[in-house]
Simulated scan of single mutants.
Amino acid sequence: MLAFLVNKREIKELEYLLKREMEEILHDLNDSRIDQIVKHAMEDRYQVLFNFFKRFASERDCCKYLRTKKFKGNKMVK
Rank of each mutant, 00 (worst) to 15 (best):
F52Q: 12
N51H: 02
L18V: 04
I25L: 08
Q47K: 15
H27L: 08
Y16V: 04
K75G: 01
E43C: 07
Y16A: 10
D44P: 05
N74A: 12
L5R: 12
H27N: 06
M22A: 00
C63M: 15
N74H: 13
M76C: 11
I25D: 06
Q47G: 06
K70T: 09
E23P: 04
R33H: 13
F53H: 00
N30C: 09
N51C: 01
D61R: 03
D31S: 08
L18C: 02
Y16P: 00
V6H: 03
E13S: 05
I34E: 12
Y65H: 02
K8R: 14
K70D: 07
V6E: 09
G73W: 00
L17A: 08
Q47H: 13
F53L: 00
C63N: 15
D28K: 15
R33G: 10
C63H: 13
E59Y: 07
L66W: 03
K64W: 03
I25Q: 05
V48A: 12
R33K: 14
R33F: 12
E13C: 02
E21F: 02
D61S: 06
A57M: 00
S32L: 13
M76F: 05
N74C: 10
K54D: 03
V38C: 01
L18F: 01
F71V: 15
K54F: 01
A57T: 01
L18A: 02
C63T: 11
M42P: 05
E59P: 08
F52M: 12
R33Y: 14
R55N: 06
A41C: 09
F50N: 04
D35I: 02
V77P: 06
I11P: 00
N30T: 11
K75C: 05
T68M: 05
N7A: 03
E24R: 15
L66I: 05
F71G: 11
L66Q: 07
I11E: 11
I34L: 12
F53D: 01
L26F: 02
K64A: 07
D31A: 05
T68R: 08
D35T: 03
Q36C: 10
I25P: 09
D44G: 07
C63Y: 12
R55V: 03
L14N: 11
E10L: 05
I11A: 03
M76S: 14
E13Y: 02
K19L: 01
K8M: 12
I37Q: 14
G73H: 00
F50D: 03
I34W: 06
L5H: 10
L26C: 11
K72A: 09
K8L: 14
F52D: 13
R45H: 09
F53S: 01
N51S: 04
